[in-house]
Design a binder for these strands. Sequence first.
DNA 1: TTTATGGCTGTCA
DNA 2: ATGACAGCCATAA
Length: 114
Amino acid sequence: MSRSTRASGAGAYARIYAVVRRIPRGRVATYGQVAELAGLDGHARQVGYALHALRAGSAVPWHRVINAAGMVSPRAVPGAELTQRQLLEREGVGFDLRGRVRLSVVRWKPRESS
DNA sequence: TTTATGGCTGTCA
DNA sequence: ATGACAGCCATAA
């Protein structure tokens, strides 16, 4: 890091992972929400990239992070969204007929002690 | 260094 | 309610 340490540095990733890791099972959070909690308020996209950088085996439940529409993003890799959906369903997250979750119900609420 | 792309979001029709 | 467009910004090449 020759460049000075700033909020938008590589440390941002660790912060994002920390937030995602805090998401309890059976609950989901939107990219924008995670970004805000990670201090990257407004940089929802950055969260998506950080999660994309993760690899299988990471302790980060990336599948619990979805977009503001309440559904998994149609990533470049076909089938991946189905995998995320299955993981969520396995945790008790109910999906809509259109493949959307009820954010009003499964939306993770930080602050409150689970 | 610049260029191109992207796991989004919010607004308008 | 859904569908389409533009904007923002960091990462990777």
